[in-house]
Nucleic acid binder design. Structure first.
Length: 260
DNA sequence: TAGCCAAGGTCCATTGAGTA
DNA sequence: TACTCAATGGACCTTGGCTA
């Protein structure tokens, strides 16, 4: 029986595994080609502006994997604790907020959105009862700015569609065949709500749930040893949410160790 | 040009939201 | 509360770009 402070994984468990992220690495390029300079500036001055000033995002799958293997048992379900070089370090909501600059205060409440209509969906995807992220990607890439095919809606709507694409494909790390959240569309359509919304918590909870579950073996009711061994041999897994903040946190933690 | 690796694509079992 | 079915996430496969 494991108690608080114990390692969850043996050192030689799943050591050859690799973690991946299935969001859009090229989000800046995808979105930039869709927007005019004024719209691009508006996006960079908005609530997600930081993410459009980054040079680019680089995913370190092996680094994340090796740190995840050093997780230890903790009684706090809202963070993750690791033991690295004999020292305990904690990845928390506060750390995520500092790294991303996104609001992480209260818990997320969607109740107010239930009665609202999804205007953006009605106008730009008429007749569709659900929109896949691939549909939105196709819409954005097939209306490049400055060409005969460029977007004909309002300036604000162009920025809103770009924002929705960014939230779903980057902050949520969704694959293209997954649905665009109606809630996200409604929040982004409301300027005031969008700038005050708790994006950090939404994205942190997604990331934490994914980090906590990706290496855990499936609940194996059978006592079959072969099944358990097979589970250990899995060679890859996908991380959801925005794991780049976790990468930055890892690098910061290593720097602190280096200085001591 | 072969081999490697990361990114993108797809299948399917599980999950969870909606409804009676 | 039980049931149904669409959405999701895990796992694996394919593609494409890079390098030696």
């Amino acid at each position: 029986v494991l108690v608080e402070g114990d390692r969850i994984f043996e050192f030689d468990d799943w050591r050859n595994s690799m973690s991946y992220w299935k969001g859009d690495f090229q989000y800046k390029k995808t979105i930039k080609s869709f927007l005019s300079n004024t719209q691009w500036k508006k996006l960079r001055d908005g609530v997600f502006g930081n993410f459009f000033r980054l040079q680019g995002v680089k995913f370190c799958g092996r680094l994340i994997h090796s740190v995840l293997l050093s997780e230890i048992i903790s009684n706090d379900s809202h963070s993750m604790t690791f033991k690295v070089f004999y020292r305990e370090v904690k990845f928390t909501r506060e750390a995520f907020q500092i790294i991303t600059g996104l609001k992480c205060s209260s818990s997320v409440d969607f109740k107010v959105l239930r009665e609202r209509e999804n205007r953006l969906s009605k106008v730009y995807f008429p007749g569709k009862d659900r929109i896949e992220l691939g549909d939105l990607w196709h819409f954005i890439t097939s209306h490049p700015y400055g060409t005969t095919a460029s977007f004909v809606g309002s300036h604000d709507d162009a920025v809103k569609l770009a924002t929705i694409y960014f939230v779903e494909s980057v902050l949520m790390g969704k694959r293209k065949n997954r649905n665009v959240s109606e809630r996200v569309m409604k929040i982004v359509d409301d300027d005031e709500l969008c700038s005050s919304f708790n994006w950090g918590s939404l994205c942190y909870e997604k990331l934490l749930k994914s980090l906590k579950s990706c290496l855990k073996p499936k609940q194996n009711t059978s006592e079959n040893e072969n099944e358990k061994e097979k589970d250990k041999e899995k060679d890859s897994y996908t991380i959801l949410g925005f794991p780049f903040a976790f990468c930055v946190w890892i690098m910061e933690v290593f720097l602190i160790f280096q200085e001591k």
